[in-house]
Design a protein around this nucleic acid. Structure first.
Lengths: 346, 346
DNA sequence: CTGAAAGCGCTTACAG
DNA sequence: CTGAAAGCGCTTACAG
């Protein structure tokens, strides 16, 4: 046998075990795999020797042999700097890892900073035979990664309803419905001038929530006042600025819905600076129910979207796709829950 | 050649290319590796055919052959449910992934929920030949993973100074120094009764910060009042409760340092409920400078600990360990920066 | 500059 | 119940 220098401490292999146990490598392999056709004695003896020699199977070799890696890869969006600061993403990730491990899958995460690089990484993960499935953490408009994966006919699922939502696995909340529900709650509190802050055309989630909000107003025979709808670059602008803009226009609302709790915090600050109080003068609500919403002053009404559940479900769809005979596509709507707190209740 | 059923679409291999190009597989391999001894013509021809046949090398096979996976694994602590909600961890993770990719390493993250399972996963990653290095995201007291990895003599680094800090790679801030600096800042503002909230013996980071705080008081000839030091289960209890406890004892401080910004937010709330104002009646400061600290009311004085940098440095230490001839151990202290905001300045 | 051969450490159909 | 052999898809020392 040839051996290169002292590259690394060569560990014991199935052959070493076989030699000592006086059986063939095949038998050792079968013992590891718990193959039922191996006699109890042989099995026990081999096991004993494996233990003595401190043997552990090489997963890479096994992967090559069985052509299965048991690895999922999750692609964090390229502009992760800002994105990842939002508690939503770590929570999704936590759901993904938990569910993956439950299914005996490992998870590889990307750390690329731009879209071109992401494409390269996706190619390595998929064509390189490393991952068996991909989870896209955000759906962008005209997402090149979705294109790539579709073209490759590779199992993947996206978190957040994608632009082209047919023949693609995805999980999301019903953002239209929760936008509707939150607006309805404020209408029920007697509000007629409800502002909506933080719409960003690039993110469907905000647009869908806004549509729900509009419909709720219509269903309550309230006018949709376009001046009360403030756009922004989602998660780049801050809620303080958006609210200031609203004050500047001179169109004070009696309630404001922010597309995200983090924006709502800025809204609270802006309102405080105008010596107005929440909820007496202006009611405020957000989405995503971040951990701090419960503790801010006053506690913030929000919508729990269950990011952990989104992550778990994403993995389940992926598993289904991988294990199905013919290509399967599915979507999953994760239930969200309105959490009413002091910021909207007088 | 044998072929099992239709397990999966068999992709083109180096042999397919070789056949079409009329060269040996070795040559194709050398072309892929950019081996300089291959003639330009051969090289170009092979490349053309690879492109035509849409070839992509199988990374698993390559890994087996060269006995190198280019994978790091990061172990998120078992009680990740609470942990991961803190912005600190995603930021460290972001630093880790960014630095790893820069070094051509992929990163695998764990998703285990208890310590026993973590041990099993670590074993698979290390002994199974999957990872080349491990990053431990938190150092616990008597961390079993650290024991395991040390025993295996496997390259690893821990984020957060571990209990036994010799012969182990780790990165951290100088928590003693930043505790000192923050307390000194408050002393300079004229405070004499400075509370310290959120010490948790299980986490050295909090203990070190407290020691720094105590020393700062001593150096300023101020008494250390033990009643003003409130312990808690770090990140399990909340700042609101801790501050209430302080009020209950009847020992009102003129300033409070919370071991973490998230705790400080609860402190602010408790103070507001007592109709006291910050910083006029009580100054408040935290650590970790979470994104919201800048936007809360009033903006919170904190310490920027640079979690991203911690992640990056962790990878660098790992790279150094892996590439060094003989086992190397190192530590890195990442600079932190006091960020003074309105909550402590009258 | 290129090829034949052995090797990385497993799995599994086939034969007995 | 077990073994010999071929195979997974690469790399690389050796020989020419």
């Amino acid at each position: 046998m040839h051996k290169r220098g002292l590259i690394k401490s060569v560990s014991t292999t199935i052959n070493d075990i076989a030699k000592v146990a006086n059986v063939s490598p095949s038998t050792v392999s079968r013992v590891i795999a718990n193959n039922s056709r191996i006699s109890k004695e042989t099995s026990e003896n081999v096991r004993k020797i494996m233990k003595e020699m401190n043997y552990y199977p090489n997963m890479i070799a096994r992967s090559l042999a069985i052509r299965t890696t048991k690895i999922f890869a999750v692609m964090v969006p390229g502009d992760a700097e800002k994105t990842f600061l939002h508690p939503f993403f770590p929570e999704v990730l936590r759901g993904i890892t938990a569910a993956s491990y439950r299914n005996d899958y490992k998870v590889l995460i990307s750390g690329v900073s731009d879209v071109t690089e992401e494409k390269k990484v996706i190619r390595e993960f998929t064509r390189g035979g490393i991952a068996e499935g991909i989870i896209l953490m955000t759906s962008r408009v005209a997402d090149p990664s979705i294109e790539e994966l579709t073209k490759l006919n590779f199992p993947f699922v996206v978190v957040g309803k994608p632009e082209r939502d047919k023949e693609i696995n995805w999980v999301d909340n019903n953002n239209y419905a929760i936008g509707y529900e939150l607006a309805k709650h404020l209408v029920d509190q007697g509000h007629k001038r409800i502002a909506f802050l933080g719409v960003c055309p690039e993110f469907y989630v905000t647009v869908d929530r806004m549509h729900g909000y509009k419909q709720a107003l219509k269903d309550s025979s309230l006018p949709v006042i376009e001046d009360l709808i403030i756009k922004n670059k989602f998660r780049e602008d801050n809620g303080y600025d958006l609210m200031q803009r609203l004050f500047d226009i001179g169109k004070k609302p009696t309630a404001v819905i922010a597309c995200d709790d983090l924006l709502a915090f800025g809204v609270l600050k802006s309102i405080a600076e105008h010596s107005l109080s929440v909820p007496q003068d202006i009611a405020v609500a957000g989405f995503n129910n971040v951990p701090l919403s419960e503790y801010c002053i006053p506690p913030l009404t929000s919508v729990e979207v269950n990011p952990y559940g989104l992550g778990v479900k994403a993995v389940e769809l992926l598993m289904a796709d991988i294990n199905s005979e013919h290509k399967s596509f599915d979507r999953a709507i994760i239930p969200a829950k309105l959490v009413i707190r002091k910021s909207t209740v007088r």
